[in-house]
């Protein structure tokens, strides 16, 4: 097991790989619905490179951050589904 950190996903702590992005961490713990689209569809990452904006989540209280471009950090709080 590579080095891990604990991040808070939707209020619950999860142990995730230290070297992962928030997007990879969310998928790893089974969180596939990152955001709710304008018409109510659940969406997740598409481009993986910070362009499509489908992977937006709230990170440490700041809305609409790109999870695929953000490395995890110990204690980080992530909210999905917004």
């Amino acid at each position: 097991m590579p080095d891990t950190v604990v991040i808070i996903i939707n209020g619950r702590p999860h142990q995730v790989a230290e070297q992962s992005t928030v997007a990879a961490a969310l998928l790893t713990v089974g969180e596939t619905l990152f955001r709710t689209s304008v018409s109510g569809q659940g969406r997740g990452p598409l481009c993986g490179m910070g362009i499509c904006m489908e992977c937006r989540v709230e990170i440490d209280g700041v809305p609409a951050r790109l999870s695929c471009q953000t490395p995890v950090r110990s204690g980080m709080e992530v909210r999905t589904g917004g």
Binding site: S20, T21, M49
Partner: peptide, 10 residues
Amino acid sequence: GLQSLVKSGL
């Protein structure tokens, strides 16, 4: 996109 996510820890 999937490749990049796997490289990022998926």
